[in-house]
Amino acid sequence: IDAAQIVDEALEQGITLFVVNNRLQYETSRDSIPTELLNKWKQHKQELIDFLNQLD
């Protein structure tokens, strides 16, 4: 699994991931984030931050 897949998966569930001051953040209108997704974010945090920083 790679960062792009995780970002896409989040988007499919209505969650936008982004980076502020090198910290992973998210925006969503959902009430809660699925635990499975949160765990993936934690496991791949640095990859996600690097990936999202490249997009900007």
Results as ranks from 00 to 15, higher is better:
13 Q>N: 13
10 A>Y: 03
7 V>R: 04
37 L>I: 05
13 Q>V: 07
16 T>K: 15
56 D>E: 13
47 E>R: 07
47 E>I: 14
56 D>S: 13
9 E>R: 04
27 E>K: 15
39 N>A: 14
10 A>P: 00
50 D>A: 13
40 K>M: 10
38 L>E: 06
34 P>M: 03
46 Q>P: 04
21 N>Q: 08
5 Q>A: 14
21 N>H: 07
11 L>C: 14
14 G>R: 05
16 T>D: 05
20 V>I: 11
16 T>G: 04
44 H>G: 03
28 T>L: 04
16 T>N: 07
49 I>Q: 03
53 N>C: 09
34 P>S: 06
16 T>Q: 09
15 I>Q: 00
32 S>M: 08
56 D>F: 12
1 I>R: 07
30 R>D: 05
25 Q>A: 12
19 V>D: 01
41 W>A: 02
43 Q>Y: 08
20 V>K: 13
14 G>I: 02
32 S>G: 07
38 L>P: 02
14 G>V: 02
21 N>K: 06
15 I>P: 00
54 Q>S: 13
15 I>Y: 08
43 Q>T: 09
43 Q>C: 06
51 F>Q: 02
41 W>H: 02
44 H>D: 01
55 L>I: 13
37 L>H: 02
25 Q>D: 06
20 V>C: 15
3 A>F: 09
24 L>S: 02
17 L>A: 01
56 D>G: 14
51 F>T: 02
11 L>E: 07
54 Q>R: 12
23 R>P: 01
12 E>A: 12
29 S>C: 12
53 N>F: 07
13 Q>C: 09
26 Y>Q: 02
7 V>H: 04
56 D>I: 11
22 N>C: 12
8 D>F: 15
1 I>Y: 11
12 E>V: 09
29 S>H: 09
10 A>G: 03
49 I>F: 04
37 L>K: 04
34 P>G: 04
46 Q>C: 08
40 K>P: 01
7 V>I: 14
6 I>N: 01
46 Q>W: 10
1 I>H: 09
42 K>T: 11
31 D>V: 09
5 Q>R: 13
55 L>F: 10
16 T>I: 15
18 F>N: 05
44 H>C: 06
35 T>A: 13
48 L>K: 00
15 I>F: 08
42 K>Q: 12
31 D>S: 10
30 R>K: 09
25 Q>M: 15
34 P>D: 05
8 D>P: 01
3 A>Q: 03
1 I>F: 13
52 L>D: 00
30 R>I: 06
52 L>W: 02
3 A>C: 12
27 E>R: 15
30 R>C: 06
18 F>I: 12
5 Q>W: 11
32 S>Y: 12
44 H>K: 05
19 V>W: 03
52 L>H: 01
33 I>M: 04
4 A>E: 07
37 L>F: 07
13 Q>T: 04
28 T>K: 03
8 D>W: 15
47 E>V: 13
6 I>M: 11
42 K>W: 13
41 W>M: 09
51 F>Y: 15
36 E>S: 10
36 E>C: 06
42 K>M: 14
10 A>C: 04
19 V>E: 02
55 L>E: 07
55 L>R: 15
24 L>R: 00
20 V>A: 09
47 E>N: 06
2 D>Q: 12
16 T>S: 07
28 T>A: 06
29 S>V: 09
51 F>G: 01
12 E>R: 15
48 L>E: 00
7 V>E: 01
18 F>L: 10
32 S>C: 13
33 I>P: 05
31 D>K: 09
56 D>P: 13
47 E>G: 06
51 F>I: 03
52 L>N: 00
32 S>W: 13
46 Q>G: 06
8 D>V: 14
23 R>G: 08
4 A>Y: 06
15 I>L: 02
31 D>E: 12
33 I>Q: 01
25 Q>E: 13
36 E>H: 11
39 N>K: 12
22 N>P: 01
31 D>G: 10
33 I>S: 01
3 A>E: 03
54 Q>P: 06
17 L>N: 00
23 R>F: 11
38 L>A: 05
6 I>C: 05
24 L>Y: 02
6 I>V: 06
6 I>R: 01
37 L>Q: 03
55 L>G: 09
17 L>E: 01
16 T>Y: 15
11 L>P: 02
2 D>R: 13
7 V>G: 01
47 E>F: 07
44 H>A: 07
23 R>L: 14
3 A>K: 02
24 L>P: 00
56 D>H: 14
43 Q>L: 13
8 D>C: 15
36 E>M: 08
4 A>W: 10
38 L>K: 07
56 D>A: 14
38 L>I: 11
24 L>H: 00
37 L>Y: 05
29 S>F: 10
13 Q>L: 14
53 N>W: 06
30 R>H: 07
40 K>Q: 07
51 F>D: 00
29 S>D: 12
12 E>W: 08
31 D>T: 10
53 N>T: 14
54 Q>G: 13
9 E>S: 04
30 R>S: 06
45 K>W: 14
55 L>W: 08
3 A>M: 14
51 F>S: 01
22 N>Q: 06
37 L>D: 02
14 G>H: 05
7 V>T: 03
14 G>A: 04
41 W>C: 05
26 Y>I: 06
27 E>W: 15
19 V>Q: 03
53 N>D: 05
7 V>N: 03
39 N>I: 12
26 Y>V: 05
16 T>E: 06
20 V>W: 12
6 I>D: 02
45 K>Q: 15
6 I>H: 02
19 V>R: 01
36 E>P: 06
27 E>V: 15
25 Q>Y: 15
2 D>N: 14
28 T>G: 05
22 N>M: 07
4 A>V: 05
13 Q>Y: 15
2 D>M: 13
52 L>M: 04
38 L>F: 08
31 D>C: 10
14 G>W: 04
43 Q>N: 10
7 V>W: 07
12 E>L: 11
2 D>K: 11
56 D>N: 14
37 L>G: 01
38 L>R: 06
17 L>W: 02
44 H>Y: 15
21 N>F: 07
56 D>M: 13
26 Y>L: 04
23 R>M: 15
34 P>K: 04
52 L>I: 07
41 W>Q: 00
14 G>D: 04
15 I>G: 01
27 E>S: 15
50 D>K: 10
10 A>T: 04
55 L>K: 14
35 T>L: 13
21 N>C: 14
31 D>P: 11
48 L>C: 02
27 E>N: 13
15 I>K: 01
52 L>E: 00
41 W>Y: 04
36 E>A: 11
35 T>S: 10
32 S>T: 12
5 Q>C: 07
37 L>V: 04
8 D>N: 15
56 D>Q: 15
9 E>A: 05
35 T>I: 14
36 E>N: 08
30 R>M: 09
35 T>V: 14
36 E>Y: 13
32 S>V: 11
21 N>R: 06
49 I>N: 01
1 I>P: 08
43 Q>V: 11
20 V>T: 08
20 V>P: 01
37 L>R: 01
45 K>F: 14
9 E>V: 03
54 Q>I: 09
54 Q>T: 12
23 R>D: 15
32 S>R: 09
51 F>A: 02
7 V>C: 05
34 P>R: 03
14 G>S: 04
41 W>P: 00
4 A>K: 14
10 A>R: 01
13 Q>E: 08
44 H>W: 13
54 Q>H: 11
10 A>K: 01
11 L>G: 05
24 L>Q: 00
27 E>I: 14
55 L>T: 10
52 L>R: 00
32 S>L: 08
1 I>M: 12
23 R>S: 14
21 N>T: 04
21 N>P: 00
33 I>T: 03
3 A>T: 05
50 D>C: 07
40 K>S: 04
46 Q>E: 09
28 T>C: 05
45 K>N: 14
53 N>G: 08
28 T>P: 08
52 L>F: 08
49 I>C: 04
4 A>P: 05
47 E>T: 08
40 K>V: 08
40 K>F: 09
37 L>T: 04
29 S>A: 11
11 L>S: 08
18 F>E: 04
4 A>I: 05
41 W>T: 02
14 G>M: 04
33 I>N: 02
42 K>P: 01
